[in-house]
Simulated assay, not measured.
Amino acid sequence: MTEGGSYILKRGFDFIVALMALIVLSPIMAVTAILVRWKLGSPVLFKQQRPGLHGKPFYLYKFRTMTEEQDENGKLLPDHLRLTPFGQFLRKYSLDELPQLFNVLKGDISLVGPRPLLMEYLELYTPEQARRHEVKPGITGWAQVNGRNAISWEEKFKLDVWYVDNQSFWLDLKILFLTIIKVFKSEGISHEGHVTMPFFKGEKKDKDEAM
């Protein structure tokens, strides 16, 4: 299949599956939104700018999982202090990720691809790691079904680049199937000692701190 044909197939599949998922999951999303409003307050959605295809920024949407608690200086408390048991439940079963289906409909992301990380990471990647932006980011990806947040940044980026070089419609189907299994098993939600992943500081700094 030509590159253009592969893009049309992937985009069509993304749109149809995301639309069907939104219809089927709308009751769950409605209940989740009500509970987030009740337990965590406004806003219900967490909105943050992330890099998309070729690093182009877009706004990613999630259900909030943390409070807005601040210290005496008006600075947000560390993540582990703001993450509530309810927020942990949402993350455990990936319910916080459901609003990203709207991002898929818009074409910001795909169902499958490297996870969109923080904008400030762009200048920290090596040229090889930056190749993860040669495809659209995704709700789930090869790194997510091979360790998720339990693996190191270096391992995660190698898996992302492997996906870039080996992507196919059948690989996407495999990743989606494995994702469903991982969600029910609640595997790889956090890195050791962190609620998700430690902040990426670049390959050189990470190696220096490990010495």
Rank of each mutant, 00 (worst) to 15 (best):
L40C: 02
N146R: 02
R115N: 08
V183T: 03
M1I: 13
G74D: 09
L159I: 08
I34P: 09
G5S: 13
L60T: 03
G193M: 00
K47Q: 15
Q144G: 05
G55T: 12
T67C: 11
Y93F: 12
I23L: 15
I180P: 06
R11F: 07
I180A: 08
D160G: 06
K92F: 04
Q129C: 14
Y121I: 13
A130M: 15
G147H: 00
G107K: 01
F58Y: 11
M20W: 04
K92C: 06
L60Y: 01
W38F: 13
E187H: 04
S110Q: 01
L124C: 09
F102P: 02
I189H: 03
L83I: 08
A210H: 04
G147E: 01
R148T: 02
R91T: 07
P43N: 12
W170G: 05
Q49P: 11
G5R: 05
E187W: 02
K205D: 11
H191C: 12
G147I: 00
E120D: 15
V112P: 00
A150M: 01
A143Q: 01
L178M: 11
A30T: 14
I109M: 06
D108H: 07
R82Y: 03
M197I: 06
I8M: 11
T140V: 03
T179A: 03
K47E: 15
K207T: 09
E97W: 06
G55L: 12
T67N: 13
Y93S: 07
P51K: 10
K156T: 06
L176Q: 05
E72Y: 07
A33N: 10
L122E: 13
M197Y: 03
L118E: 11
E187T: 07
G193E: 00
T67M: 12
L60I: 05
Y121L: 13
P114S: 11
T84R: 10
K106C: 14
D96G: 05
K56D: 14
F58V: 06
F63C: 02
L45N: 10
L95F: 07
V183A: 01
G202H: 04
T179N: 07
E120P: 07
G188H: 01
G147P: 00
S186V: 03
M1R: 08
E72P: 09
F177G: 04
F184D: 08
L9F: 11
E72Q: 13
I189V: 09
G4P: 13
D160A: 12
L117A: 10
F63W: 08
G4N: 15
V164D: 05
V112A: 04
L118I: 05
M20I: 15
R148V: 02
G113A: 05
E192I: 07
P116F: 00
